[in-house]
Amino acid sequence: MSSLSISTELPLKKETTEQVNKTVVYDTKNLNLWYGNNHALKNINLPMYKNEVTAIIGPSGCGKSTYIKTLNRMVELVQNVRISGEILYREKNIFDKEFRVEELRTRVGMVFQKPNPFPKTIFDNIAYGPRIHGIKDKKILKEIVEKSLRGAAIWEEVKDRLHENAYGLSGGQQQRLCIARCLAVEPDVILMDEPTSALDPKSTLKVEELIQELKENYSIIIVTHNMQQAARISDKTAFFLNGEVIEYDDTDIIFSTPSDKRTEDYITGRFG
């Protein structure tokens, strides 16, 4: 059995040696989450690997957004959230009392559905993260800003107007600015919550290309409602349905020979 249907067992147990040698950045174990009485995530088990793009797909309301927000504990901003189980980030449980949320979020960046630049200049948007983490030196800040903007493939477009308000940028540019803002903190993992859902096709393509490049240096976990996107850019894909992981495997396998009927129904467009 080459692909795995996910049960309570840890997935990818019996994998090839190639898989075993990869570093696990995120390992979710028996995760359950409730909004009040609504059981939103049910017994999730998912390992995620370094320098890979992991896509999370599923119909709306399946818990994929909730799950990605749990990875950096942003989900706790919602009232009445209850969580059980554990998520190991580089072998440390992120729910451990001693693991400070702010520390986790420094290591794990996030890009949101809608671009959310601060109402500041482009420069100050990028410099925000480094500044709160104690970098005051103007020269170093300038270097970080340039490096991050280059990293997000937007440097050429904005280098002459770094001191203009970020709101003057187009939607697609704003989203790449937000990615740059995230890179400026030099994260280990980047979480992306439907980063292209508010963008036009052309900007979407640019962001997708960027994700491919970023994978060299970062591990990326991306939620998307767009299956073609998942197929194009990801290495692994997890299919969520009603708060459960139905199937998790290499993207090629998920989209060619899924082992679960429901996955097949979803990717062939029979529901969702």
Partner: peptide, 16 residues
């Protein structure tokens, strides 16, 4: 620490 060039993790954590 992989590609960290500007932010020193120990310093960031201490400051935190």
């Amino acid at each position: 620490k992989f590609h960290s060039h500007y932010l020193n993790i120990e310093k960031v954590n201490k400051r935190m």
